[in-house]
Nucleic acid binder design. Sequence first.
DNA 1: AAAGAGCTCAACCGCCCTAAG
DNA 2: TCTTAGGGCGGTTGAGCTCTT
Length: 284
Amino acid sequence: MSTNTKSLSSNSSEDDNELRRGPWTLEEDTLLIQYIGRHGEGRWNLLANRAGLRRTGKSCRLRWLNYLKPDVKRGNLTPEEQLMILDLHTKWGNRWSKIAQYLPGRTDNEIKNYWRTRVQKQARHLKIDTNSREFQNIIRCFWMPRLLQKIGDQNQLAFSHQHSITAPPPQLPQSTEQGAVSMSGLIHDLDIKKQDTESSSCMVPSQLPMEMSNTSQFSEYYPYSPFGGAIVNNDQIINQGMDIFSLGNSAAAGNCFVPDSESNWLDTDFSCGMWNMDELLQKC
DNA sequence: AAAGAGCTCAACCGCCCTAAG
DNA sequence: TCTTAGGGCGGTTGAGCTCTT
């Protein structure tokens, strides 16, 4: 950043009138916070002048929105937030500010950085284009399920911890333990079900559409359902894909991945009310 | 311990849109 | 209708940090 170094290191009287660039100092931050505290945001060029900041209005706006604003959340993105970004990006592409609206406290800049440093890095390693259908599928079938598993694990851990101190876990039918995951209103309560099989477990939303939750097919088949298939500890099932976000928008519609006889995963459309076990079994 | 590679993220750039005059 | 200023957005850069060899 040679230009920055130049402007920052300069101290001649001629340069006193020049606009500053580069990292913000504590003094500048304080001036900006105090001015906005008294007069509010907006008219950024005027604000920069009146606050005594030798910065462009744009620079002030950026510093405030991305860093100084009190509700800006710091720290790593949670698995829930990462999941949200992946899903929203498949819908809107690089509309960072739009995506940021769904992640309170996170800035478009932060989301953009996450995408470029984490997601695009994976695509580079795989030597595929991030916009390709192939990569979209990888995100949907591998990455998102893995994040969901993380969320489930954290949740289960929190639950066990809580109940190991206060009370034993409630006895639910078929050795079911209950946890809760909240993801900006899209995913609500999730049950963590333990299968009869030794190492596999699976998550299903407790707030299923009535038609689905009332069917015996669902309870029998949930390991391969759009809702439950991804969140298991069994290596065979862990690669299943799902589109759980459809729950938030249209009750239940989207895709799920079901295993065929060769242990390949088949992309299967489903929609609430029309999906049933017989159909899925036929596809296998 | 040192050097180089890789990564993160704050900050800047340039383009675009909108509203006011 | 044209010009200008303010503001928003996505893309890019590079300093500083961490990791690897």
